[in-house]
Design a binder for these strands. Structure first.
Lengths: 243, 243
DNA sequence: AAGTGGTCTAGACCACTCT
DNA sequence: GAGTGGTCTAGACCACTTG
């Protein structure tokens, strides 16, 4: 046994404490994303709890989206939000969206402005990585993105050729930095393009602009991205399902 | 005993069948909104199932938002799918959103145009209820809505004074028609106001317009609403959380 | 056939709420 | 104190997946 009796010393229920322990192991990377947890029976006996209690703890984690249970197969740590959590909802034009090609147009380490620092949960002025990105669909430039990334964490992106990163950023976070995006919040609004951005997308200055402001968090609950995406409002579609 | 052994004759699990039975009673109004269900022990023994199985069924209904469990008090039918499943995400202006006041400006029974019929999953030309609604925040008109509702189902809304409906429509669906909205899909896009709509919101014609197109489904999977909401794009904010 | 999660049982005791 | 839901146990058997 690696761990003994789970006791609710903290005032938590037994299954609550159990869920906390398993959550910590997942977040610490002891069970990496995509891997299977030990079987229910084994987890329960190792911790000296009844099967039902262990199952209740796993239900909590499944509800949080941290693990996925598959009948007959096992309990798996959910991989990072796979390709295009955004593109599933967000597309320009009416075609079934291919992933837009991505080109990094600027990369620099800079002090975080107040708004960005607040979004990332850091102190103002802390060093962060600032990226600009142009995304195109079939050679037509469609989206302008500005990204601010917290720096000790995503250091690996300050070096190397961004052309090697591919068209999706989150797989890149996972592979190069072991950062697994787990939850994102988008806020949608409308504005107008400034002259430079409009020019980059070959639109007239002052053209209506759809604006998606995104924060992303990893499994440990750290904010790992603050992003603003701009595109032609007239071509913008965003679909949301609320259950 | 009012009912005997719940058996999974339909291929459902026992707790699934149990949940279905209890759901039906709630939807049929046998246990009216706000009332308490019988105690777990009693429900379980009446149906000849173990307590755990009955609890699993109630957990399903609680998860669906149909009932609310209160420790030490009982299990209660939720008065109405709580306010503003939409407004939690969707707000105009920057204030913490109060529920906008609502005024029905037009009500008529009409043949469904093709696009609407498709959205509702009905045949073109079927009779539906068409509503127009003006929503205001603190006496300032903010949102124009056009709603199309399937008619045998929401017949109760064709009579009575809409002024009595209150500011939220879904509680009204629940109370007057026993229709419980369970899932909605919003599609957000951008357009320009026509002259009449602009005038109603005191905006110049051709002003940028944020457009939210919504479909809503009830517990049985029937589409119960097709809605278009228009508002000033400059004041529009929509927040989405993806997990 | 072996291993996994899913369902179900029949108890026990605890924590909360109301009177 | 009586009644409610919440937690926990120690089994049993079923359904799904894989070798």
């Amino acid at each position: 046994m690696t761990e003994h009796l789970i006791e609710p010393t903290t005032g938590l229920s037994r299954y609550g404490a159990l869920a906390a322990e398993l959550r910590r192991r997942i977040v610490d990377g002891q069970w990496p994303p995509g891997s299977a947890l030990p079987a229910e029976q084994r987890l329960a006996s190792e911790r000296g709890v009844a099967l039902g209690t262990l199952r209740q703890a796993l239900a909590v984690l499944a509800d949080e989206g941290l693990v996925e249970r598959r009948h007959g197969r096992g309990t798996f740590v959910r991989a990072a939000l796979a390709g295009a959590p955004m593109l599933r909802f967000f597309r320009f034009g009416d075609r079934a969206a291919d992933v837009p090609a991505s080109r990094i147009t600027s990369r620099q380490v800079a002090a975080a402005p107040a708004a960005v620092a607040a979004g990332l949960g850091l102190a103002t002025g802390v060093q962060v990585l600032r990226l600009r990105r142009l995304r195109s669909v079939g050679d037509v430039p469609r989206l302008l993105e500005e990204l601010w990334l917290p720096l000790p964490l995503l250091d690996a992106l300050t070096v190397g050729d961004p052309a090697d990163w591919g068209d999706l950023l989150y797989p890149c976070f996972a592979e190069r930095c072991s950062v697994h995006v787990h939850r994102v919040v988008d806020q949608i609004s409308f504005a107008q393009f400034n002259a430079a951005d409009a020019r980059a997308l070959k639109l007239p200055a002052g053209h209506p602009c759809a604006l998606v402001q995104r924060q992303a968090w990893d499994l440990a609950g750290r904010c790992v991205e603050w992003r603003v995406t701009r595109g032609d409002a007239a071509a913008f579609r965003y679909t949301v399902s609320i259950t």
